[in-house]
């Protein structure tokens, strides 16, 4: 096996091993852990974070960061819920547009993609550092969510909309389907699409990518647009599951998704990492949260432990990188 492949293999292997050890330990510690119900439970719980984290993986691979996905999640969900519940009045034409469930879903996704696109444009055309651009968008989207909802939840969205978060298909929960399809798509995108290869090149060396004639700006805009759209998907799942759009939905989710990406072995400096790594990262966090809950560990301790896991994961990566580089 070649050097690069074996290094990547061992990075992956380490995460898998960590996950396996956790599962094993939890099987021994709790008889409620290894049940089908709990398994679905974990998958359902990680679905929202995984949707966000796939987008975050693309962004981080490109050498950037996106702090606005949690806020975009909230706004997309709120807009979809609002349009579905109340429609939108266009006084100029003296009409009230009513939305079907499908229409509301599309609108929610458009809002997510549109805000992501704005991020991309701010970062490329206006040369803002990704941290700053998405920090600004975070605040804007949070504010717009408050304006749109008036600070109150929008509830009672109907059963067909509720299917997204609570329905099942072939006895598999819908969020798990959505998450699985997205993972499959984006594993393909990053591994086999030209766009994916270009994405790694932009994150690995932007100057070289530019000199090689790659559409660096277009690639970045696409990456942030996708991250926004995926935040929209997450927003729809959250809103549907609760049957209500909460003005404060997704608070702090961007940090959870960064954590999953980092635990999954993707380098914050860009150009190194994978979507499959992020899937493992999400699973590790999901199993950890679930296990600690089953063991009646206080949520406050759960946060502390999650922090320690993040630090350990990155520290181990760094130690390996030190042996590999130079």
């Amino acid at each position: 096996m070649s050097a690069s492949k074996s290094a990547a293999f061992f990075a992956r292997f380490r995460s898998l091993l960590a996950l396996a050890l956790m599962v094993l330990a939890l099987c021994l510690l709790s008889d409620r852990f290894l049940t089908p119900d709990n398994g679905w439970n974990i998958l359902r719980q990680i679905s929202v974070n995984l949707c966000l984290s796939i987008g975050m993986t693309l962004v981080i691979l490109s050498g950037g960061i996106d702090l606005s996905v949690g806020a975009i999640l909230a706004l997309s969900g709120a807009i979809a819920a609002g349009l579905l519940k109340h429609g939108i009045a266009l006084p100029a034409f003296d009409v009230l547009l009513q939305f079907t469930t499908a229409g509301a879903i599309v609108a929610g996704l458009f809002v997510g993609a549109g805000l992501g696109w704005c991020n991309g444009v701010a970062i490329t055309r206006f040369q803002l550092p990704p941290f700053v651009a998405t920090l600004g968008m975070f605040s804007i989207a949070r504010g717009l969510t408050m304006l749109w909802t008036g600070g109150f939840p929008i509830t009672g969205l109907g059963s067909s909309f509720g299917e997204i978060g609570t329905g099942t298909f072939l006895s598999v929960p819908m969020p798990v389907w959505i998450m699985s399809v997205l993972v499959a798509i984006f594993v393909l995108v990053t591994r086999r699409l030209r766009f994916g290869r270009h994405l790694y090149a932009v994150g690995g060396n932007e100057r070289a990518a530019r000199l090689t004639g790659l559409h660096v700006n277009r690639i970045k805009i696409a990456v942030y647009t996708l991250a926004g759209a995926l935040a929209g998907v997450a927003g729809l799942i959250v809103t549907s599951r609760l049957d209500s759009a909460q003005p404060n939905a997704g608070l702090g989710y961007e940090l959870d998704s960064i954590a999953a990406v980092v635990i999954g072995g993707t380098s914050l400096s860009g150009g190194r990492g994978s979507v499959t790594g992020t899937v493992l990262g999400c699973l590790i966090i999901g199993v950890l949260n679930n296990g600690l809950f089953l063991l009646n560990v206080s949520p406050f301790w759960q946060q502390v432990i999650k922090g320690v896991v993040i630090l350990l994961a990155v520290a181990i990566d760094k130690m390996n990188a030190r042996g590999r580089d130079s």
Binding site: S2, G204, N205, L211, R272
Partner: peptide, 10 residues
């Protein structure tokens, strides 16, 4: 290294 190569790539 700065302009020609994508170092993390094969």
């Amino acid at each position: 290294k700065r302009d020609g190569l994508v170092l993390p790539m094969s």
